[in-house]
Design a protein around this nucleic acid. Structure first.
Lengths: 233, 233
DNA sequence: AGGCTTCGTGATAGCCTCTAACTAAATCGT
DNA sequence: ACGATTTAGTTAGAGGCTATCACGAAGCCT
């Protein structure tokens, strides 16, 4: 479970304590949210006094960064597992929802309100593009859905986020809408904005996914000509 | 500007100080986010000592609740203004994006990561349904787009969130997707998840809106039969 | 002008992050 | 096996925060 390939007993112990700290941190985040995380409380719950934790993490921000990294890593692994039988957008969507419901605060750690000063380290953005690559693969395997979109041609010229993935513009656009539309439903559900509204969020998610798999519109031929909506506002 | 209909000079003064506190609070939120809001810092920046603020707000949570209320009120007013010439979904969408970009933290105060223990007071949910009513009006005025959806029939039976609005199921579904899809794009943009990806978020938002106005798919005839996606997971 | 209400203050308790100095223990080199 | 070095954990303390309390100093109303 620990999986620490440590050599010396010191390193073994250190890794173990770091892991327990993170464990307690996740417990605390689950009840108080990321903003309510307290190094002091973690230390006391582990039976040691406050400043001891600073031997293991440089500070609160450092611990949170590690938690964010783990959250990204966990999502990437979940996506990888869901794509193991082969690229499958529906499986990815269900995996995403399951992962989000499993621990809503973890989802918000990845996609939630940003902390103003915070900037994610490079390795995290690396995991993010790994996630995006999996999504692009799944969308590329979907049956094509009509001609390209005007925004697709814009994406064609700004595709550095695809990180070398050879997807055609229609797939780029589709992957992007997959991401944003599922996030739109999920984040509002997790934030509790659907509670009291009456309908079943699972059904709504399924309907949205269904629409995405069917092509999801994306002005497949119909729609207004480009430029009509004065996009730059 | 103040608009305080106060009678006694005491009430005038009190309302003025409360307003200045909120003003400083917004300034502070803009730079440090809602979680970094400090009553002490506000007090010192106003030239008075810490505990004085407790004459005006019962505590930090009370102030934040007031800010959330103002944010909801501001969005509702923006929507009302955008609908003044008549119900217009596109105008609503542009108004929403403008409002969000004007002050991203205000947007997240409404639609962002929830504080675990927090429960919004009743009057706020009232403003929320006022916002939803405006959106429903706009979607009802849109040209119809094909037959109903399976999820639409589910909404027909769970329409208490529409709060008496006489919209048909297709409009309910459409309003819901309007909300979640625009939120999906906006929240990720405001959270900075698009930075470095290369494309223009405004164009993406416009493309999403275009698709929504064109009918946005929602399995208009095509798509898989209901139940295939095992919605309850 | 007197009495009552409200405002703002300093003091205090308790929480937090994080630094510094110190002790105790474990590891390493010989 | 033993001394030297590295590391873990402690207490003390600075500085910040929320929040309560008791007190003096204004302001308002009759």
């Amino acid at each position: 479970m620990t999986g620490t390939g440590a050599k010396t007993p010191r390193e073994r112990y250190r890794a173990q304590v770091r892991a327990e700290i993170k464990e307690r941190a996740w417990e605390q985040i689950a009840t108080a949210g990321a903003s309510g995380l307290s190094l002091n409380a973690i230390a006391k719950r582990m039976g040691m006094s406050g400043p001891a934790l600073y031997r293991y993490y440089a500070g609160r921000d450092d611990l949170i960064t590690e938690l964010v990294r783990d959250a990204y890593r966990s999502l990437a692994d979940t996506f990888r597992a869901a794509s193991a039988p082969g690229p499958d957008a529906a499986a990815l969507a269900h995996a995403l929802r399951g992962w989000a419901l499993e621990d809503p605060h973890r989802y918000f750690l990845v996609y939630g309100t940003p902390v103003p000063g915070y900037h994610a380290p490079d390795d995290i953005t690396g995991i993010a593009s790994e996630i995006m690559a999996t999504l692009l693969d799944a969308c590329a395997a979907l049956p094509p859905d009509g001609p390209g979109t005007p925004f697709g041609t814009h994406l064609e010229e700004h595709r550095q986020w695809a990180d070398g993935h050879p997807a055609p513009p229609a797939v780029l656009h589709r992957a992007l809408t997959f991401w944003t539309r599922l996030h739109g439903v999920l984040s509002l559900e997790l934030a509790g904005h659907f509670t009291g509204m009456g309908f079943d969020p699972a059904l709504f998610f399924a309907a949205e996914l269904d629409d995405l798999l069917a092509g999801g519109g994306r002005s497949a031929g119909r729609g207004s000509p480009p430029g009509r909506e004065d996009p730059a506002r």
